[in-house]
Design a protein around this nucleic acid. Structure first.
Lengths: 140, 140
DNA sequence: TAAAGTTGATACTATTTAATATCAACTTTC
DNA sequence: GAAAGTTGATATTAAATAGTATCAACTTTA
């Protein structure tokens, strides 16, 4: 599932969309593919699931990309990774509300040496349902 | 602030938008104006603030209406009004994620006899910033 | 009771936006 | 080292969407 194996042309074919669209989703912060040293992308099966979910959100649920990004920005990352209060005080992700945490360049932070691609915050909460479920779990 | 006093033509003028647009925001679940017995709307000053916020979200932040509605649907109402676990188990608002709780017809519920118009959930969390702040407060 | 305002509804429009196509430069493959 | 594939970027397009105008029926105002 998590093995980066599909180059962009294959991923696009499997997802049924064009290559520029895949790049757009990435630019918009909706997905983070693995990158080779040469900067070429490789997609995992989990990425394909995520892409499917993104398409559903945009094409069926009719939420636009900015809306989706703002929803992702509401994931309570601090309560998932359990960073310290000091870290939070200086964290752009914690203190803003227009970008998900994985779109932010974390410096001198709990997240500085962590890889967002492997972080639960990015991996587990790609849509409204999963985010609300997490909130329910955290706010019993 | 909470006194219903402006008929729709005045509210539209004060908000700088057309009457049909005001009705649309209501239909879309973004605002709940007070209604007279004759079904005519009256807007409060707080409504005007909310309308201003809605316009900003749509026109400046570029979040579309469906996106905004989904964001509002993420407000953890259950943790704000403290309804019972049994109520939650059967509550459409708790168990879905596409509409804010005030768009739902609550039956045999903690919220059945409550007026959404006066509920903190509706009143206090009209935008991303306020929602995220509430999550921070609840998830320390 | 006449004039002005509101109701929900339908029809229309100007913009926006998701999605492509195409490009020259670079990387991989065979 | 030639062919195929990828890179980011720009330009273009088809469709969706926020916003209006307009309507007959109803309510309020004066």
């Amino acid at each position: 599932m998590d093995e980066p194996k599909y180059p962009i042309s294959v991923a696009a074919k499997l997802a049924g969309i064009s290559i520029p669209t895949l790049r757009m989703y990435e630019r918009e912060g909706l997905i983070i593919p693995y990158k080779k040293e040469s900067n070429q992308r490789l997609y995992t099966d989990r990425d394909l699931e995520r892409i499917h979910c993104i398409r559903q959100t945009i094409n069926e649920d009719k939420i636009n990309i900015e809306g989706m990004r703002r929803i992702l920005a509401l994931i309570p990352c601090w309560a998932i990774v359990h960073c310290s209060e000091e870290d939070r005080a200086a964290c752009e992700a914690y203190n803003s509300h227009n970008k998900p945490c994985w779109m932010i360049n974390h410096k001198n932070n709990f997240c500085s040496d962590r890889n967002c691609l492997e972080c639960e915050v990015y991996k587990a909460y790609g849509n409204c349902a999963s985010i609300k479920d997490k909130l329910k779990e955290l706010l019993k």
